[in-house]
Design a protein around this nucleic acid. Structure first.
Length: 162
DNA sequence: CGTTTTTGACCCGCGC
DNA sequence: GCGCGGGTCAAAAACG
């Protein structure tokens, strides 16, 4: 990075932060997004947007986006893990040139990997706040480089950066 | 100066 | 048993 990070000190003010970006939605709307609503608004998105209670060792996303559908189809054979911990998993498919979508939290990149089926790199982000098990996975669409698939994992256990 | 980014290496699960 | 795929960590560098 060198000039693609218009944030850093303004993380405390997500409002002004967003004014700088070309977000098609408002921060509040973005946070209260309903997976069901998204499906209605984006019928072409298939099952890319979903909210599932994942379990450790449940179904890993292997392959391309087509495999993501498998994640929705959890296996009943290991449903006993459900009582363990509920992990919220939300995937967003947004048409934007920027992949670093600021949601008011601080994200620290902890890894970059190349998908074997695409020349698109996959970025792994994590909440900089300690105690926040929230993880973010950002990947570009294979078919539409203009689209960005952002997958949020976990819930924020700390107040906003404000 | 602190924080974050970056890249490579390492680790884990499972498939064959 | 080894290889593959994916995911994570870690040390150093870069940036504000």
């Amino acid at each position: 990075m060198t000039e693609k990070n218009p944030r850093t000190a303004n993380s405390s003010s997500p409002e002004s932060d967003f004014s700088n970006q070309q977000w098609p939605f408002e921060l509040s709307d973005y946070l209260s997004f309903d997976d069901n609503e998204w499906l209605q608004n984006n019928p072409t998105t298939e099952s890319l947007v979903f909210q599932a209670n994942e379990v450790a060792g449940g179904s890993h996303i292997e392959g391309s986006s087509s495999s993501i559908r498998d994640t929705n189809n959890m296996n009943m054979s290991g449903n006993e893990n459900w009582k363990k911990e509920v992990k919220e998993r939300v995937a967003f498919k947004t048409k934007s040139l920027i992949e670093i979508l600021d949601d008011g939290y601080r994200w620290r990149k902890y890894g970059k990997k190349m998908v074997k089926n695409s020349p698109n790199p996959r970025n792994y982000y994590r909440c900089s706040v300690e105690g926040c098990p929230v993880k973010k996975r950002v990947e570009r669409d294979n078919n539409d480089s203009s689209y960005v698939i952002t997958t949020y994992e976990g819930m924020h256990t700390h107040p906003n950066s404000c």
